[in-house]
Design a protein around this nucleic acid. Structure first.
Lengths: 199, 199, 199, 199
DNA sequence: CTCTAATCGAGACGGTACGTCGCGTCTTACG
DNA sequence: CGTAAGACGCGACGTACCGTCTCGATTAGAG
């Protein structure tokens, strides 16, 4: 019988064919996301673009969302790898700068990921990876539940970036980084020197 | 000739039958939202629950989202009517208190609205009404684009409330109001007395 | 909800749309049967030929076989209406003549019905109608169970006709009628004058 | 190179592994036939039951029907070997007796073979072997085309046996043999002494 | 208080995507 | 290094829902 997913979720398959299929599907999704919003894509369409059989999709992912989550997981991984120490006080300014620069460089991809039906899944994936990162970090502030700090920090960052990417006018990455720092990061880490640099 | 919607959008119908139909549909949606997430509801199901004919749905709303937007618009209207002066510095503490109290009182409803596929539309509706409210208010801060202030304020508030409603443990409304105030409102209005009440 | 068949099986619908759909489907099936064997036809293909939506097929018939049974039922009805008294001794010769003539006239249709995967359903439908007809008739012979008489008579007749229609050479209907009479009918009704006309 | 069938159809393989595979497949089919109708069996299922690889099936048979034909051919061979002289006048009574006895002894197997989707292939296989047997025999009767005699004789016999095996009540083999003799064999061979034993 | 037209229920229809299944081929990875 | 396991492309299946449509039957509100 060949029903169901052969690989456990989160497990990279070893079979070269599966690797090829998944790669093709991920690539096709990224391509299509730059053309149309996520919701409007059908599995048939993604499979066709990937040059893969329709049923093969289900051999690798239970649904469209799982594929997006896979893609999102990778992209967010790249993003966070670049901006790891974002929550450390001493370097948050540099981190937010790096993050916004990275997004700006891959603006088209991230526009696709953050606008359209994909945002929800991206947010969830971002929060999850943030949780992973936060495990070894100290409790930020007593008045703020740790989990809320993560959910809020990740969610608000996503919102801010989505707003940025959705604007017509051209805000430079540095300005957005500054806002991100002052509006979101600073209140989280309790650093007053950021909140009022001019003071 | 009964094609299309008889009433212009945003226009309340005068015919008693239409009023009854819309009321029944809104009620049915609210009922069902407390049972299952929005995405999983079908128009057929909502119509059946409302005791209304299937086609009648389309005589009143173009799609499922429009009905949700209608419901959301009303609920958010009630919410904001109760907490109007939230962005005025002198009364933000009281406003956030009132807001969280209101949500807590209608906890079940707002859980349904903010968790499940409905959140996106709620957020959009909330932002739109926030924009209306903000029209007569002064530009908050120069470093922060006005529209971003609204989008961020509304979005982050929604996120915070959604996190709260999704928690198992019982955070009192007052504590959430405090966090809301310090984490979101204060950085927006630039009031340092909130961000560091002990200072 | 619109799942399932709205009309009880064997019940002719009153809705004009359903009548039209069923008629179109039956016609399409008959057309296609003259082109390719029944097994190789897909529901999609029949629907397309009928100019009817794919899902509409299932609104009217549970599967391909049911549609064939419907068509078969009608055709066999016409056939038997023409040859009712086939099992009455005094007129069996005339009846078999009429039957074979009728088949010969509609040779193409009956070739399609009796060759290809359709034969099994045709046989079943024929047996069922034969059972109906036989209800008011006397027990034929004690050595022969009544039900077997029907099953055998109907089945063997179908086989004979199928053989005839599958032949290249041109047997006249009258000859087949004679064989049918002598080989199948006579042993059933126990008439020796048919079995040995020369005796 | 494993494309295509290594053995010509009708050719018994010499390779021990192929012999083992085919045997296992035939055995598995026979087992499964006693559980569910032929149509509902899948090649995957038969292979699994046989303990053989899925692809191995195709190395030995082009499709499911070919395997059934192989099985059927053997079983019919055994059957006919036991009842060879069925069409010889002088011994038809004994032959039909033997045939029905044999079927009765292997009732379960033959029930499976004659009821369910397998009947068609069995009928074809039976007719083919009957044609082989009939090659050396004289033209039975001038009014009856020789090929029709075979097709009809084989088909009607199959029908009669299928009816018998499908009955709830317990007809003894001898009675069925009598009916077979009188209803089918006698008209074919033109023996009036069978058709009316009491006369 | 009547009559006319809008609205209603019911539900069939053409479409489209879903997720499952089985086929027959072809590639892998293992023994 | 040969063979089982099984992934693949293909395509049909039957289901679900969408949004449109055609029916009477009912009912509201203008005259």
């Amino acid at each position: 019988m060949e029903a169901g997913i052969q690989q456990r979720p989160g497990q990279v398959p070893t079979d070269a064919r599966q690797l090829r299929s998944r790669g093709a599907l991920k690539g096709a999704l990224l391509e299509l996301l730059e053309e149309r919003p996520f919701d409007s894509l059908s599995i048939r369409e993604i499979s066709a673009r990937a040059g893969t059989g329709y049923a093969t999709f289900f051999r690798n992912y239970p649904d469209k969302e799982a594929l997006l989550a896979d893609v999102a997981s990778e992209e967010i991984g790249s993003l966070l790898a670049m901006t790891q120490p974002i929550f450390r006080i001493e370097s948050s300014a540099e981190s937010t700068q790096a993050l916004c620069q990275y997004i700006d460089t891959h603006r088209k991809l991230w526009s696709a990921l953050l606008t359209g039906g994909a945002a929800g899944i991206l947010r969830a994936e971002f929060i999850q990876q943030a949780r992973q990162l936060a495990m070894g970090m100290p409790q930020p502030e007593s008045w703020l539940p740790a989990d809320l700090a993560i959910v809020y920090g990740a969610g608000a960052t996503i919102d801010l970036l989505a707003w940025w990417l959705g604007q017509e006018s051209d805000f430079p990455a540095s300005r957005i980084a500054g806002i991100l720092n002052r509006l979101i990061i600073a209140p989280l880490v309790g650093d007053r020197t950021i909140a009022a640099p001019a003071g």
